[in-house]
């Protein structure tokens, strides 16, 4: 088997100063193969965004700190790369799309200028050629009348159109890896579907690997080959999409799936997971999910469960796994 394009190994990112240091990401590992799509799911504050920023090495230091582990991209450890080589990767072989299309583009430059800027950093295209390429990219992301839109300012576009521009920007230099941090969260549902479809289609054409960060299980089911479920800064379950949805093993994953409203089942109340995520500065001896877990016992509260394989490619961090008859 070929080495994965991206592999994150035991990554630990801390925040804070002096004595108030806490880990936002604590021992996270996963890998993304060339051309594949990996989803990272979890609720707000579970560390998924920090993980994605860490891969681009865009966590602001301080207050952040890369406290351990490695991020290997095509063999080189990004955490040890000099800043100039890291810059060449950012926007070059690694592109990133953010959650907020409304604010992620600079309001004082035209969409075209912002794409051209990225092209010029990473290649020596002439102004003319860069502009043509920008129009081509806007066409690729199916922005209507790209030759006119290229001179529009972001405020003249809708949210969905701006996210298309962001995708064009991220894809400008044919990246090997596209990191999408909640790319559809701020958009309304019909636009969400269009954007996801666009990303899948572009992946088929360009062979880009995608790391998709989301809290939306529906999005994961539609787009990802493999899923990593994160909880309070750690990976609690990792499996191919079909296995995860067919046979979720971690009580947290089970709870997440039960919380998705279903159109075919009448319910007065939506299922929820009792309690809330422990704050990252709270020191816990055992499993971080124990306080909310229906299966928790003394061992769970005192000993952190390691991530272990219960089937090929299916790994769970739970003392009770494999659980049988878990309902999805």
């Amino acid at each position: 088997m070929a080495a994965p394009l991206l592999s994150v190994e035991d990554l630990r990112v801390e925040f804070g100063v002096d004595r108030n240091v806490f880990p936002a990401v604590d021992g996270v590992s996963f890998a993304v193969d060339r051309g594949a799509t990996l989803g990272i799911v979890g609720e707000s504050g579970c560390g998924k965004s920090v993980t994605s920023l860490a891969i681009m090495r865009l966590v602001s230091v301080p207050p952040g700190r890369y406290a351990g582990g490695a991020i290997r991209f095509d063999g080189q450890d990004l955490l040890r790369l000099p800043e100039s080589r890291m810059r060449a990767l950012r926007g070059g072989r690694m592109g990133m799309i953010f959650q907020e299309p409304m604010t992620s583009l600079n309001p004082v430059y035209t969409c075209g200028d912002q794409i051209v800027e990225s092209l010029k950093v990473h290649s020596d295209l002439s102004a003319r050629a860069a502009r043509d390429r920008a129009i081509e990219l806007l066409d690729l992301v199916r922005l209507p009348s790209p030759a006119k839109r290229v001179d529009d300012y972001p405020h003249q576009l809708s949210g969905g159109q701006r996210q298309r521009v962001m995708i064009a920007l991220a894809l400008a230099n044919d990246p090997d890896l596209l990191i999408a941090d909640e790319p559809t969260t701020a958009l309304d549902v019909t636009i969400q579907a269009q954007i996801l479809e666009l990303m899948k289609d572009l992946q088929d054409r360009t062979g880009t690997a995608i790391l998709l960060i989301t809290h939306d299980l529906g999005v994961v089911a539609e787009t990802c080959d493999e899923v990593v479920v994160m909880y309070a800064g750690t990976v609690v379950e990792q499996a191919p999409t079909a296995a995860l949805f067919g046979d979720p093993q971690h009580p947290y994953t089970v709870g997440l799936m039960a919380a998705v409203p279903r159109i075919d089942v009448a319910a007065d109340r939506l299922a929820t997971i009792e309690g809330s995520v422990p704050p990252p500065w709270q020191v816990l001896a055992g499993c971080r999910f124990a306080s909310r877990c229906p299966l928790a016992d003394d061992r769970c509260r005192n000993e952190p469960p390691p991530l272990r394989a219960i089937a090929p490619a299916h790994r769970v961090a739970c003392w009770h796994a494999p659980i049988d008859g878990a309902a999805a």
Binding site: R87, A88, G91, M96, T103, S104, N106, H122, L169
Partner: peptide
């Protein structure tokens, strides 16, 4: 602190 500055960094600008 704004989002678009993060985008600019993600483009690989100095």
């Amino acid at each position: 602190r704004l989002d678009h500055v993060r985008t600019a960094r993600a483009k690989g600008l100095s």
